[in-house]
Simulated assay, not measured.
Amino acid sequence: MILPPAAVGVLGGGQLGMYFVRAARDLGYETWVLDPGEGSPAGRIADHHLVAAYDDREALDRMGRACAAVTTEFENVPADALDHLAAVTVVAPGSGSVRVCQDRIAEKTFLRDHGLAHAPFAVVEGGEDAAALPEELFPGILKSARLGYDGRGQASVATPDDLAAAHAEIGGVPAVLEQRLALDTELSVVLARDPDGAMEAFAPVENRHTAGILDTSTVPARVPAALQDEATDLARRVAEALGHVGTLGVELFVCDGRLLVNEIAPRPHNSGHPTLDCCAVDQFEQQLRALCGLPLADPSAHSAAVMVNLLGDLWLDEGRVREPDWAALLAVPGARLHLYGKAEARPGRKMGHVTVVAPEPEAAADGAARARRAVGLPPAPG
């Protein structure tokens, strides 16, 4: 075990890194952040902030010497940086898990090779004969292999004749073409796995998106208990196959009652934010516990919860920046406001979230609807 007051580090200075730093500081660890942004949310609250690129060997060496263990807040950190750090300190998750999750071609191939249910897909490198692709993939969604998130790097493809234009729209980069599916709903499972393979999973979360960006997460998910158990088992199988150590988010589609893995996040997940308020332990403390070899905590929920993402659009009014009516929002019973401290509000940028907790799911849903109205958000997507 790596015990406080040892130093722990995180690659990435966004809100996920910020909550990891908070969890580590609460338990008495010294904290380090490596992130190129001087005003990053995590860097501002850490004991030490290395303002450097993720592949800066000098900065990596300094972090490796100082920290007993290092993790990452997102999958797009160079996997080679994790390998470099692993030569001198404990690193979790390892580069193998991150390499799979940071490239959709690798991710879909991993799911296929391990018999994990997923949407039909084909690799599109460029110059393919669209007519030779499986007919079942149309209509489909073309997704860039790397650096695509929150709906970015994606284009709809109605017929084979549309493939070339769609590929040009996403920059002509390597991609996967996935069959467009009729979804019953979307779920996610966030779990933690320790170095010995022990796992603890939070209850499955039901998610709603707007324009490809997560809008609302509901705990407990409004699906049958048997389907929740199946989702948890599928997420555990993913973690085991990856050999993942740390917190893991697994996004799932429900299609005609059948579960399919959509994407894997080798770190805490946006849909896991309700754990900050509705569980005895949150996803970030579990990340820390797994990294340091501490016993994983009981992830049971003590309340129902609905989380609503607060995007930069909320601050923007006809080109002017305005502060939302936090007084009205905080007057909603059970509302817990989380602002990330980002300096600039931009459309689609995650600036914070509000979670409404209540003893019963109906009360949490009613409170979330009131919170949306309080700050002028439209009703939740159906």
Rank of each mutant, 00 (worst) to 15 (best):
G367F: 01
E58Y: 06
G272M: 09
D325F: 07
D162Q: 11
I264S: 01
A24M: 06
D233T: 14
R152L: 12
G28N: 13
D313T: 08
E251G: 09
N207G: 06
R104L: 11
K108M: 05
A304I: 02
R372M: 03
P5V: 03
A92T: 11
G148Q: 06
V308D: 06
A290L: 12
A164L: 13
C67P: 01
A158K: 14
P381W: 07
I2Y: 03
G348R: 06
G94L: 04
P36A: 11
D313E: 11
I213Q: 03
A241M: 05
T355D: 07
P359C: 03
E178F: 01
A365L: 15
V281W: 09
D35K: 02
A81G: 10
D194N: 12
V254R: 02
E360R: 14
R336D: 14
T159E: 15
G140S: 08
N270A: 03
V21W: 00
A221I: 08
H48K: 13
M351Q: 04
V306G: 01
D229I: 03
G37L: 14
A358P: 01
S156R: 15
D162G: 12
W315P: 03
R349C: 01
D317G: 00
G257P: 05
L183M: 05
D277C: 08
G64W: 04
R267T: 09
V375G: 11
F202C: 02
E230R: 15
L191T: 05
T72A: 15
E285R: 15
T247N: 05
V157M: 08
F20G: 10
G376C: 04
C101H: 07
K143E: 06
L133A: 10
T218N: 00
L16F: 05
A365W: 15
R258H: 15
L291F: 06
A305I: 02
G64S: 07
L291K: 04
A201W: 07
A182D: 15
D298T: 11
E263T: 09
S188K: 06
R22I: 13
H353D: 00
G272L: 08
R336P: 13
F284N: 07
S97C: 13
L163D: 06
M307R: 10
E240T: 15
P36Q: 08
H84M: 11
L311K: 07
L27Q: 15
P295I: 08
R25V: 11
S144Y: 00
E318K: 13
D55T: 11
S303H: 14
G13E: 05
T218Y: 00
H269C: 02
D80I: 13
F20C: 08
N76T: 09
L3G: 11
A168M: 12
V190C: 09
R349W: 00
A106K: 12
G293S: 13
A335S: 04
D229V: 13
V250G: 08
G28P: 12
R236I: 10
A131C: 12
R193V: 04
R289N: 14
G12V: 03
D61C: 07
D35W: 05
R237Y: 10
P381E: 08
A158V: 15
Q228V: 00
D366W: 11
T72H: 12
A132P: 00
A221G: 07
E169W: 09
L296C: 14
A52G: 06
F284D: 08
A327V: 14
V308W: 00
S217N: 04
L16E: 04
L242C: 09
A327Y: 11
L85D: 02
